[in-house]
Amino acid sequence: MAQIICNNVTVAYEKEKVIDNVSFEIEQGDYVSIVGENGSGKSSIVKAILGLVSLKSGKVLFGEDCKRSHIGYISQQNPNYKSFPASVYEVVLSGCLSSKGIMPFYSKKLKDTAKEYMELLGVDEFANKNFKDLSGGQKQRVMLARALCATDKILFLDEPVTGLDPVAILEFYEIINNLNKTKGITIIMITHDTQNALNYSNMILHLYRDSSKYFFGTKEDYMKHEGYHLCSCGSEHNVKEKIHKMNKEGV
């Protein structure tokens, strides 16, 4: 059953279209990786689904069992995180905000939920520590605990492993994969790491700078697609250089 349906979605900043007429459906339990060059509209499509940017045209529909308040979101590293005075517990608990209602305080149940996710992600020992004093990997686990407080259905992640060391990256991917497999949480992740995207996800959305062009399909189909061959050349910084070299060699 489709959980999110994007129907001919177009997003434009001023007059420039960054997403043009993109349509796809995400099923419950999917692990979708959104890949593509910088400026191809990866963050814009996620923000469009989340309602953070307005659509120029098209529609985003949510399945019957899914509301916008059931969404968990880890945005790109926010400059605020470096200096904000907040304990880890305060940050994680803020994920329960949409369940709190109009009352000025969190119920015991919500506080227990926050503690449960802190334990699950191994950040409970830092509960009273300042968020800004944590390492990059620890911060991302805290953000994940906060996102899980908001949802047990869909998790959006915008380049969550940027700036993490290789061990923390691998650990983070394993946690996400585990949540997808054991709890059935739908994962929608923006990433530049095509190799790991293919290792873990079952669906790929590849966006191009040419906003009218995109690929959405299974991992297997993607591996036959030109976008995959472009990305599998190595890091995206070297893509143009390598294509040039391949052309020169007649490959």
Binding site: I71, Y73, N78, N80, L97, P104
Partner: peptide, 23 residues
Amino acid sequence: FMWFYHQIFAITFDENFAAATGV
């Protein structure tokens, strides 16, 4: 400030997350 303390915290800390979760 007393009634909406938690909303104020969430918006000040991470506006995008707060908006995405329906605040």
